[in-house]
Every structure is written in structure tokens, then in C-alpha cells.
Amino acid sequence: MSQTLNYPRWLVAAFSVAFASVLILAYGIRGAVADPSSSLAVGPTDQVPDLVMLPLADFRLSTENGRKVLRFTVHTENKGGTLDLTGSRSNASTASLTVVQNMHQTGGGVRSIRTNAAMRFAVADGHDHWHVSNFAEYKLRPVGSSTWRGAHKEGFCARDTVHIEGNAPRSFPNNCEPGRSDALKVAEGISTGWADRYDWDLWGQFIELDRLALPGDFCVAATADPLHLFAEAPKDNNTTSSLVRITAQDVRVMRQGC
């Protein structure tokens, strides 16, 4: 047999007020979280680099090992946040340095990102310093052909060579640890508004022209980070190209873009 419990009216009223207060408090907290206008703390964000290949310059013909070659100057500018790379190895018996990208953030923080890039000590160019492999790519094809041929230069010492715009300081002025084949850690990069320049007369800064019909029209292209080794955006400004006419005696730029 069931029994009905009779509570005093004052106790029922007190319980009802307390329950209503809990509901109001819970709704208020939920509303504060859901309200996009509420002043919640925002965490640091990445200042992503933006590598831009500037128009090619200083085209000229030369001869290397008895073969005619095309030479030109390349500028890779960084229009975004600092490109900061650190190569390291545990001991000197390992030939390559593994590379992390140090992503600078708003508020002054830095977070490290693992990459598939490598640094190698280069001696063939006479610089005797550390290069970031596949940092850029140069190539040429005859107009009307889909077959490209590449340049000799594949590794690059990424550093602040030329100031292009803005007021960011020069953070990477060194020459990539010259003579330090025993180095265990190497810092390279390009600061905001600075460019890494490779002049036409440097070693490897050419594409061979043997077995190509001259005179002729050719597309010459240069791409920054062709293998997408680094976090940087956007990607649609990483390549520049020039349409050039090459004869046996000289080279002339017909237009930018091809």
C-alpha cells in the first residue's frame, strides 16, 4: 500500500526557488559560452611565411666546359612571416642535417615543425657552406614543347641578401656556416621583406643549351619550394617565368610570363 508524503509548504517553496536558481545559472553559463560576442581569450596564431619568386633578371649567354649555357639572376622574397629553418644532427658522421621550421607566432612564441627538408655541406660551388636541398628549382623548355630541362644548382644557402620592403631587421645575415663541415646545428632563413639573391655569375646558376635548336623561343621558369617542404602560403606566387629569345650570340626577354 502506497503512502503519500506531505511536506510543509515552506519547504516546498524553498526547494522550488533553489531549483529555479540552478536552472538560471546553468543557462547563463551556456549562453556566455555560445555567445560569439563574449570576450574569450584568443590563443597565438602562426605568422606564416610567403615565398615569392620575383621576375628573373640579368639574362646572358656563357660557356661552361665547352657548352653554351643560359645564365640569369634569381630573387626569392619572403612577403609573410619569418622563414626560420634549423638544421641539426647528433654527430658529424651523419652527412645531412634534418630540418625543422620554427614558426613564429603572434605574442612572440615559436613552435617547431618537422619537415622533410635536408641541409648538406656543398663544396662544388666553392662556397664551402650548408645548403638547403631543393629550396628552389630552375628549368627551361622550348616554346611548344612540354619537355623541361633543369639547372645545375639544386641547393641554396637561404639568407637575407637584399632588403626589398618593410622594416623587419636582417635576422639571417650569415653565410650558412662557411668552412664548418663539422657543424651540428645550422640556422638559415629569410626575414619578412627580405630576399635571397643568386646572381647570374654564381656556380651552377645556369641551364645548358646543347642539342637545342637556335635561334628559338624558350620559357624559363623558377620556383621557390617546388616540393612543398615548408609551411608557407599562398603557393600561387612561388613561380615566375620569362619568355626569352635565344640566338647563338645573345638572349632577349620578350615578356614576363610564358
Rank of each mutant, 00 (worst) to 15 (best):
residue 138 Y to H: 15
residue 100 V to G: 03
residue 175 N to D: 13
residue 195 A to N: 03
residue 151 A to E: 10
residue 86 T to N: 09
residue 178 P to M: 07
residue 133 S to E: 13
residue 132 V to M: 11
residue 142 P to N: 05
residue 217 D to S: 14
residue 123 V to K: 13
residue 172 F to D: 01
residue 142 P to A: 15
residue 110 V to S: 03
residue 125 D to K: 09
residue 91 N to Q: 10
residue 99 V to C: 05
residue 120 R to S: 11
residue 157 C to T: 05
residue 153 K to H: 09
residue 200 W to V: 12
residue 199 D to I: 11
residue 212 L to V: 06
residue 84 D to A: 09
residue 146 S to D: 15
residue 176 C to G: 02
residue 177 E to R: 08
residue 100 V to A: 08
residue 97 L to V: 03
residue 183 A to Q: 03
residue 117 A to H: 02
residue 138 Y to I: 09
residue 174 N to E: 15
residue 189 G to A: 02
residue 210 D to S: 15
residue 82 T to G: 02
residue 154 E to T: 15
residue 173 P to N: 07
residue 211 R to G: 09
residue 196 D to M: 13
residue 200 W to D: 13
residue 216 G to K: 09
residue 143 V to Y: 04
residue 188 E to I: 04
residue 144 G to K: 07
residue 171 S to F: 10
residue 96 S to D: 15
residue 138 Y to P: 04
residue 180 R to W: 05
residue 174 N to T: 14
residue 149 R to M: 14
residue 150 G to R: 13
residue 187 A to W: 01
residue 109 G to Q: 10
residue 153 K to N: 08
residue 215 P to Q: 09
residue 83 L to P: 04
residue 101 Q to F: 02
residue 138 Y to G: 11
residue 165 E to A: 15
residue 112 S to M: 05
residue 159 R to C: 02
residue 122 A to Q: 14
residue 157 C to L: 06
residue 82 T to E: 09
residue 214 L to S: 05
residue 131 H to I: 09
residue 98 T to H: 07
residue 151 A to W: 10
residue 110 V to F: 04
residue 113 I to G: 00
residue 99 V to E: 03
residue 215 P to M: 08
residue 170 R to Y: 02
residue 108 G to Y: 05
residue 153 K to P: 03
residue 114 R to P: 01
residue 164 I to W: 04
residue 118 A to P: 00
residue 131 H to S: 06
residue 178 P to Q: 06
residue 156 F to T: 10
residue 199 D to H: 11
residue 212 L to F: 11
residue 188 E to N: 02
residue 98 T to M: 06
residue 186 V to H: 00
residue 107 G to Y: 07
residue 208 E to T: 14
residue 99 V to W: 02
residue 168 A to V: 07
residue 150 G to N: 12
residue 202 L to C: 05
residue 142 P to H: 07
residue 86 T to Y: 05
residue 97 L to G: 02
residue 180 R to D: 08
residue 117 A to Q: 01
residue 198 Y to F: 12
residue 202 L to M: 13
residue 210 D to E: 14
residue 185 K to L: 07
residue 108 G to H: 07
residue 170 R to K: 15
residue 132 V to N: 02
residue 173 P to D: 08
residue 133 S to T: 14
residue 87 G to E: 00
residue 151 A to Y: 10
residue 108 G to P: 04
residue 141 R to D: 05
residue 132 V to I: 13
residue 155 G to N: 06
residue 94 T to G: 05
residue 147 T to G: 10
residue 137 E to W: 13
residue 213 A to E: 14
residue 158 A to H: 00
residue 175 N to L: 10
residue 160 D to Y: 03
residue 176 C to L: 02
residue 181 S to K: 11
residue 159 R to Q: 10
residue 119 M to H: 05
